[in-house]
């Protein structure tokens, strides 16, 4: 646990959204459907098996809508499991917001999917994502992005700007 070097390392957010992991303007009729799209994007990017999608849905069924971390934003995730092949992040924007049942932060327009191999390998990426989303201008730009490439560019630009 301690030390461990950087075998898994601290991947950057842009590395964890590699592959086919971004969906823009999706139509979901409820929160389950929205989380499902998020899970499918993780599967498409090679991070998880479909079983992980069910695990993310089960998390909300068991523990409630606490994954709605800010107004309009849900962080769908579960534990490391055999259905997770590598740490990954998916991003799904919804054409019509959906209710998760959260008292303050509903309705949700952005669902972030997170798959983790352990409790540390995704820390840098999660920190970057939180900082990126904390700014209203960047949040608006992300939600207005017309395609996945535009989202990738926004995130890459943000990471590049922070690195200098």
């Amino acid at each position: 646990m301690a030390g461990g070097g950087s075998a898994q390392g601290q991947a950057a957010l842009s590395e964890l959204i590699a592959g086919d992991s971004i969906r823009i303007g999706e139509h979901a009729r409820d929160w389950r459907a929205a989380v499902r799209v998020c899970g499918e994007a993780l599967v498409a990017s090679g991070a998880t098996d479909p079983a992980y999608t069910d695990e993310m849905i089960a998390t909300v069924e068991q523990l409630g809508p606490y994954i709605v971390i800010a107004p309009g934003i849900a962080l769908a995730h579960s534990r490391p499991s055999p259905a997770v092949h590598r740490a990954g992040v998916s991003l799904v924007t919804l054409a019509t917001p959906v209710e998760f049942g959260h008292r303050q932060n509903d309705p949700v327009t952005l669902v972030v999917g997170l798959a983790a191999l352990d409790d540390e390998g995704h820390v840098t990426a999660l920190a970057t994502l939180a900082e990126f989303l904390a700014d209203e201008g960047r949040r608006t730009a992300l939600l207005a992005a017309p395609n996945p490439e535009a989202v990738r560019r926004l995130i890459a630009d943000y990471e590049g700007g922070r690195a200098t």
């Binding site: 998390t59 606490y66 994954i67 971390i69 962080l75 997170l114 995704h122 999660l126 939180a130």
Partner: peptide, 12 residues
């Protein structure tokens, strides 16, 4: 809930 998502955000 799971020890690695929202809890990490809270810690940060």
């Amino acid at each position: 809930g799971m020890g690695l998502g929202t809890g990490l955000l809270l810690r940060m």
